[in-house]
Design a protein around this nucleic acid. Structure first.
Lengths: 113, 113
DNA sequence: CGACTCCGCTATTGTTTGCGTAGCAATTGT
DNA sequence: ACAATTGCTACGCAAACAATAGCGGAGTCG
């Protein structure tokens, strides 16, 4: 399993700069989506799988492990997964992305629907 | 080549919701990083390659094509690549990520340095 | 012209990652 | 005991990515 921790060498990020490690961690399949789907509270791994368009459990478990190792999400017995305070902090810092997506949609459709 | 446009079916995103298409587009290798590296202005494809830890040109060109098709970056003759106004808008909406990365680094090191 | 340089981009080959299905052990509820 | 659900894993296959080399085109300068 690949770990993504700041100040450590991470796949493709040889600088060790925190933002690079973060971009690397979040730039993996379903990573952003998983965090996004946890925005409203606890989800079991299978609910999470459903929410993510039935992503294959292999990749899901990889992302969950990575995000857990990074301290962004947590697993609690009989509850499932949820964002940690830190993870909530992360989600809040890219919540503007949602509004942007709407603008993006409007603009893209205006250009060549 | 895979296109990621809002209101269209995108890899893994069967909803067509803009934010899902965006998360899908940005959740590909080097996509976030490319946008990040263009934060200060024009970069030629080779400068961009260098900036992204010598990413292989195959993937870089894929991302550049996708991001260009999405209207987030633009290519100008003899100048190279740069963010479009829309792309700049996107970058601004996840600039908070940089500050978060620092907090994340601090916290992760505090827990188990 | 001809050689040189840098541009964006591609071909090829081998490895890594992700996908899809099935199923595991452990725990909980009936 | 039984079924159902939990988190998680094995396996075979397809897609994505990595690494190297090189293409054609456009400028530059002799």
């Amino acid at each position: 399993m690949v770990e993504a921790r700041p100040r450590r060498t991470v796949r493709g990020s040889r600088t060790g700069r925190p933002v690079m490690a973060l971009l690397d961690l979040l730039g993996r399949r379903w990573a952003l989506r998983v965090i996004w789907e946890l925005r409203d509270g606890w989800l079991t791994s299978r609910q999470l799988r459903e929410a993510c368009d039935d992503v294959s459990p292999t990749v899901l478990q990889s992302r969950l492990s990575e995000l857990r190792a990074a301290g962004l999400i947590a697993l609690e017995h009989r509850h499932g997964y949820a964002l940690t305070p830190l993870g909530r902090d992360l989600l809040d810092s890219f919540l503007p992305l949602h509004d942007f997506a709407e603008r993006w949609a409007a603009e893209a459709l205006a250009e060549q629907g």
